[in-house]
Design a protein around this nucleic acid. Structure first.
Length: 457
RNA sequence: GGCGACGUGGCCAAGUGGUAAGGCAAGGGUCUGCAAAACCCUGAUCACGGGUUCAAAUCCCGUCGUCGCCUCCA
């Protein structure tokens, strides 16, 4: 089945055709590295990983570019906000550069824990200042900029279809606006270059044709994606929150300079919510991968959890929900382990699976196919070989997993041995009493044909 | 205040015109000395009220509720 993907730009599911034969240029908006990523952020990165793996499953070679936003941007659109990098630096006593490096490494570690593939190119905004300056100059030459006391701005009124991606209702925005315009000419205008404050030295600032300062909020993605993928490439992704502002402005910048809307497909991952509310770095609930590990969850159980909903629908996170996913995932991987060595792949199941993932990444359905396979009457070796093919896309590390070897204390082993003896002698009451003792000590006992198996609870 | 999305069994969640995938939980069963594990079986008419249609969870209108965006944000 042909790969079909939802494109926010056209608001429709379209057949995916690469611009270049068998090759796909994919750009995904990366993390801002002034703090750890939370599991809501990571839901989007998992979605993008599934997209990439699905493209590869379809036989495409993917050049995946992801930015790292290590330039601090202002907290608010007014000039009063504090730079997040600089703020984090002040809080921790580290330099802005050290902060960026630290959280970049933390992000990479989170991705590894979630089995998210590293992009082909991971590019830092601060390594591409010149490209951003060049891009701004190009926009300037095309006549889309103006200058204020605090920076160079993009004049959005000069683009006829500004806001098309988000179907922005400019007049409605202005009517219901809650922010001050300041020196901006229009509500939707945005900074391309911000000047450093005259009275203080920023840790991150650069010279430019317009004066010392730093790049605006949206230019890095345009500049870097164009550099690595060209000015019209296949797919650009990000979180749903990027639709009205960030991606809208990326498109504006590229239209001004290159007259393209930057990407053929625009795709957006939807939010993870906690108790029906958005998870935000600023709010109380800030769950990280490490938080899950501390609570005893395998990070891959979280990856598995995100498969339960479509990427294009909000997903409510609850511990109960994560428990359900963890339980289900454990059953699946245990089953897969017990199937032994892989044999010959079942093509019919592969087709069923492919049909679901190719239908705009319907992973809930793809998982249903996986369960159908798992509970089918096919030989174990066939199931194993087939599910390992699925796992190229699922990324659950099913091939490498094996039950944890637990160290059982000698005293527990002795109790179990006594129990086995009692059972052989059919002294059930005594055997059960021993089992109760084992359970009381925090261990569980399962009788199998091969003898008792002991697990810690 | 403006814009938008959503509301499916106990929970998470597919399905978007032809009588409701899957997972978790629950109940029943098989197996077991009893358990555990595993496996099998069982359950929803789709927020509410109208309308369109031979036919609607699926389209239209209204009501209620929840959430998101409008400010950096995945």
């Amino acid at each position: 089945m042909k790969l079909r993907l939802f494109d926010t730009y056209t608001r429709s599911v379209r057949d995916f055709e690469p611009l270049e034969d068998r090759h796909v240029g994919l750009y995904t908006c990366g993390p801002t590295v002034y703090d750890y990523a939370h599991i809501g952020n990571l839901r989007t990165f998992i979605f993008e990983d599934l997209l990439r793996r699905t493209l590869e499953f379809n036989g495409y070679t993917v050049t995946h570019v992801m930015n790292v936003t290590d330039v601090g941007h202002l907290v608010s659109d007014a000039d009063t906000g504090e730079d997040k990098m600089e703020k984090s630096a002040r809080r921790t006593g580290k330099t802005a550069w050290e902060i960026a490096e630290y959280y970049t490494q933390a992000f990479i570690q989170d991705c590894d824990r979630l089995n998210i593939k590293m992009p082909t190119v991971l590019c830092r905004a601060t390594d591409h200042i010149q490209e951003q300056i060049d891009f701004i100059r190009c926009i300037e030459e095309q006549g889309y900029t103006y200058s204020t006391s605090d920076g160079i701005y993009f004049d959005t009124s000069k683009l006829a279809d500004y806001g098309y991606l988000a179907r922005l209702d400019i007049e409605g925005l202005q009517a219901g606006s809650r922010i001050e315009l300041g020196e901006k000419r229009h509500l939707t205008d945005f900074a391309l270059w911000k000047f450093s404050p005259k009275d203080q030295q920023r840790q991150m600032e650069w010279d430019s044709p317009w004066g010392k300062g730093f790049p605006g909020w949206h230019i890095e993605c345009s500049a870097m994606s164009v550099k690595y993928l060209g000015n019209f490439f296949d797919i650009h992704c990000g979180g749903e929150d990027h639709i009205p502002v960030h991606h809208t402005n990326e498109i504006a910048q590229t239209e001004a300079c290159y007259h393209t809307h930057l990407a053929n497909f625009w795709m957006h991952g939807y939010f993870l919510q906690i108790d029906e509310a958005k998870m935000a770095k600023s709010s109380g609930e800030f769950l990280r991968v490490q938080t899950l590990i501390d609570r005893g969850y395998d990070p891959l159980a979280y990856r598995f959890f995100t498969f339960s909903a479509l990427y294009r629908a909000k997903l409510n996170f609850t511990w109960e929900g994560l428990d359900a996913a963890a339980k289900s995932f454990d059953r699946l991987r245990t089953m897969v382990y017990q199937w032994g060595e892989p044999g010959i792949v079942d093509e019919d199941y592969i087709d069923q699976f492919e049909e679901q993932v190719n239908d705009d990444l319907n992973f809930p359905r793809a998982l249903a196919v996986t369960w159908e396979l798992a509970r089918s009457s096919l030989p174990d070796a066939t199931k194993k070989a087939t599910i390992l093919v699925f796992d190229q896309v699922l990324g659950l590390r099913l091939a490498e997993w094996q039950p944890q070897e637990q160290v059982i204390p000698d005293e527990i082993l002795e109790l179990a041995a006594s129990r086995t003896k009692m059972r052989q002698e059919k002294r059930w009451a005594e055997a059960d009493a021993l089992r109760d003792q084992i359970i009381a000590a925090g261990y569980e006992i399962e009788d199998t044909p091969a003898g008792p198996r002991i697990k810690s609870l």
